[in-house]
């Protein structure tokens, strides 16, 4: 569904439109929130934050604002903002001090001045994702779900129709293989 179709859908049948928008972008928003809260939030906190972001998105679209803006980037900005708010709230309560380096808003200020570092991070990530994919399925999914999404072996097992024991075993093998692949590509862990 294109942006304009989604916007029209939300206008004509708001309830169904919201669901369609949610289905289209929930994995995107979840990945954004997970990226920020992985280290300090529980799964419940992350789901709360995703739902907060969507409530914000619905309200913003109700107002009809930003009609010309690309929907995905607009949603990305709202999700990121919500995630940063949640991070500020959650990080101290789990004993993590919030340093200036950790704070996304400070990073944003500094973003343009650190182009080289960003490029390095981007290159590293690109290699990482490439190598994870080289592991082949279901190992790629296991690694991403375990390390990016903090899923447990039994949750992954359910998602890919294997037993938890088999997932753990494959995960151990996949990690070892990934380490080799990354070292070959010059990325150290």
């Amino acid at each position: 569904m294109t942006d304009s179709e989604l916007r029209a859908y939300m206008k004509d049948t708001p309830a169904l439109g919201r669901r369609a928008l949610f289905d289209e972008y929930c994995n995107y928003v979840y990945a954004i929130v997970m990226n920020k809260l992985r280290s300090c939030g529980t799964r419940e906190d992350i789901e709360e934050c995703v739902s907060d972001a969507f409530a914000d998105i619905y309200r913003a679209l109700d107002k009809g604002s930003n009609m010309d803006q690309d929907l995905k980037s607009y949603i990305g900005v709202i999700a990121k903002r919500r995630a940063i708010d949640a991070y500020r709230r959650l990080a101290p309560s789990t004993g993590r001090a919030v340093s200036i380096d950790d704070d996304e808003s400070f990073k944003e200020f500094a973003a343009d001045t650190d182009v080289q570092k960003n490029a390095e991070i981007s290159d590293r990530n690109s290699i990482l994702i490439d190598k994870v994919k080289q592991l082949g399925e279901p190992d790629s999914t296991i690694i991403i779900q375990q390390y990016y999404y903090n899923r447990t072996a039994s949750e992954i097992a359910k998602a890919i129709s294997m037993t938890a024991a088999a997932v753990q075993k494959r995960s151990v093998r996949a990690r070892s293989k990934l380490r080799e692949l990354l070292l070959e590509a010059g990325v150290s862990l």
């Binding site: 995107y28 990530n125 994702i129 990016y148 903090n150 899923r151 862990l189």
Partner: peptide, 25 residues
């Protein structure tokens, strides 16, 4: 440590992960 692998994930990679490895049931 478990989370270090994806500690510095940039926006483009987040988008890619969400598309290629959707996780929500």
């Amino acid at each position: 440590r478990k989370n270090d692998l994806f500690d510095d994930v940039d926006d483009e990679t987040v988008e890619k992960l969400s598309q290629e490895f959707p996780v929500l049931t």
